[in-house]
């Protein structure tokens, strides 16, 4: 497998607080990579650095061998690197289908394509993906009236609609009803295998991430603590310390 995201020696601090210090990691194309760590260990900061929400202090971030660490958000998104938000962001005033149609991959469109109406196949694709995440029955409801978990699923479906090359998911299972988590894991794996989307996931739920990821990185206090296959991470005493020992 080849590398799709390559992070090299990235540091980021806010004022005096060091959020990321000399982080290096790689995400393999077509795989599922996990990023774990206790609260405040700098996971979301790292995500934000990758997708362009703030400048980084040092280091390099490459996406498909292109340096993206100085690009603004839209430009990175148009390369096919997408993220979902920890606090979901959907268009609350629009219904589910409209939310899906707005997420069509604009980067693959020519400018004049914008002046067409959505085609029959666009609607079909929206319906198919809504069914895939289990929101088909609710597709005409105002998205803002959906529950938090459903909004999260909608956001995931919107990301799939966009046909990204790689998708960064910030805590996909947080706030989701535990009985639905198994279904979500299944869908994430299917998205990875059937649609060929590389996943890079921040996750707190150990069971979830251990079941999915091929490789896991663990951050602690802004530094890379451990990396390896799920089994190695699970048994790594430093990781256990970081989770149990940290107050």
């Amino acid at each position: 497998m080849s590398t799709i995201i390559e992070i090299q020696g990235v540091s980021k601090s806010y004022g005096g607080v060091v959020a990321n210090e000399d982080i290096s990691l790689t995400v393999e194309k077509g795989g599922i990579t996990g990023l774990i760590g206790p609260n405040g260990s700098g996971k979301t900061t790292l995500f934000n650095s990758v997708v362009g929400y703030h400048p980084i202090d040092a280091g390099s971030i490459k996406f498909e061998d292109e340096e993206i660490s100085t690009f603004p958000v839209q430009k990175i998104a148009r390369r096919g690197l997408l993220r979902t938000f920890q606090q979901t962001r959907i268009y609350g005033a629009m219904n589910g289908v409209e939310n899906m149609l707005i997420s069509l991959p604009h980067r693959k469109m020519k400018f004049l394509d914008a002046f067409n109406r959505n085609s029959e196949s666009d609607y079909e694709k929206a319906d198919r993906l809504l069914e895939f995440v289990g929101l088909y029955e609710k597709r005409f409801l105002r998205a803002g009236s959906l529950s938090f978990g459903q909004q999260k699923l909608l956001e995931f479906a919107m990301a799939l609609m966009n046909e990204p090359a790689a998708l960064l998911l910030d805590e996909p299972t947080a706030g989701i009803n535990p009985t639905l988590i198994n279904g979500l894991i299944d869908r994430l794996i299917r998205a990875n295998q059937e649609f060929g989307i590389t996943l890079f996931i921040i996750e707190h739920n150990m069971r979830v991430i251990m079941n999915m990821a091929d490789k896991i990185y663990c951050l602690s206090h802004g530094q890379m603590l451990a990396q390896g296959a799920p089994d190695d991470i699970q048994n790594d005493p430093r990781v256990i310390d970081a989770y149990l020992g940290a107050h």
Binding site: L82, R89, R107, A114, N116, N118, M158, N162
Partner: peptide, 30 residues
């Protein structure tokens, strides 16, 4: 115009421009 994708895209910019950017919509162009 409001019935095309263009209309939907500028509505998306109104409702949440940051999200529209994160979805790769060419916000400035629109």
């Amino acid at each position: 115009l409001y019935s095309t994708r263009f209309g939907a895209a500028i509505n998306a910019i109104r409702d949440d421009e940051e999200k529209a950017e994160a979805m790769g919509i060419h916000t400035l162009r629109y």
